[in-house]
Amino acid sequence: MREYKPKGDVQAKAYYSDRFWVAPQLPTFSVDSDEIFAEQSKKINENFEVIKEYIQTGHLVVEVKAEDNKDAVAFFKDELGYNFLMEIAAVDFLEKRGVFEIVYEMLSTTTKKRARIKCCLRENQALESVNDHFRMADWSEREMYDLSGVKINNHPYLKRIIMPDDWQGHPLRKDYPMIGDEAAQWYEVDKIFGKEYRDVIGPENRDQARVDRFDTQRYSKIKHEVPKGAEFSDTKTDFGDYQEKDGVFLVTKLKKEDSVQLKERR
C-alpha cells in the first residue's frame, strides 16, 4: 500500500524547492510614519478592536475581528473617505492556522490613499456581507463562496459564479488537488453520458510528458504513420498530398513550380 501523506496542503507543495531560497518579505512600517494614516489609525482604534496595524507598500493594513468586518468597511467608507472597494479575496490558511484570511482592498480618491482591511475567519464561521455598502461585493463574495467555500450571511444571491452549479468542492482551497478530485475528473463524462460511460471513455491522461512511440492508439511517429491502433512499423510512409494524384474536378491544384515569388509588393 502507498504511504499515507496528509493532503491538507497539497496545492501549496512544489515539486522542487531550493534549500537556500528565502521568500522575500515586504518591509512593514509603523502607522505613525504617515501623517494621514496616523490620524486615521487613531479614529479606527477608538471604534474597533484592532489586532494588527502597519503600513506595507504604501497601504494602511488593519486587521480587525471577523465579526466587525461590515462595520469596519462602513467606517472606512463613511468616516475615512475610502470610496472604492477594489477587491475582496480569501486566502486559505486552514492548514497552518485554521483560518481564512479575508482581505478588503480599499481606495480613497480624495486622499489618494489605499487601505486593506484584514480579518481572520474560522472555517465554519460565516462572514457578514458588505453588499449593503458596496454593490461590488456581490460578485466578489460569490466568487469567494464558490472558490474558497467561505459562507456569507445576508447575501442577496449566494450562488456559484465561476464553477458549474453542481460542482463538488472549492478549487482554491489548498487541500483541493490541482488536477481535481474524482468528481472533477469525471465531471463532463458523468454529466453528458452518465456514470456507466466511465469505462467506455477511460481515465484522463494526465501525464503530459509521457510519449510512447510504439503506442499507435494515441501517438503517431512522423513519417511512420500507421492507422490508429495498428501495429507500429519501422518502414517509412508516404503521407501523401492534400489532393488525389489525378486531381479533383474543377478544383485547381497549386503546383510549386507554377508559383511566383514577387520581388516587390504590388
Binding site: M163, P171, Y176, P177, M178, I179, G180, D181, A184, Q185, E188, E204, N205, R206, Q208
Partner: peptide, 10 residues
C-alpha cells in the same frame, strides 16, 4: 498546458 481540474483533457 492546462493540466487542471477545470479543463477537459481532449
Amino acid at each position: 498546458m492546462f493540466n487542471t481540474y477545470a479543463t477537459v483533457q481532449g
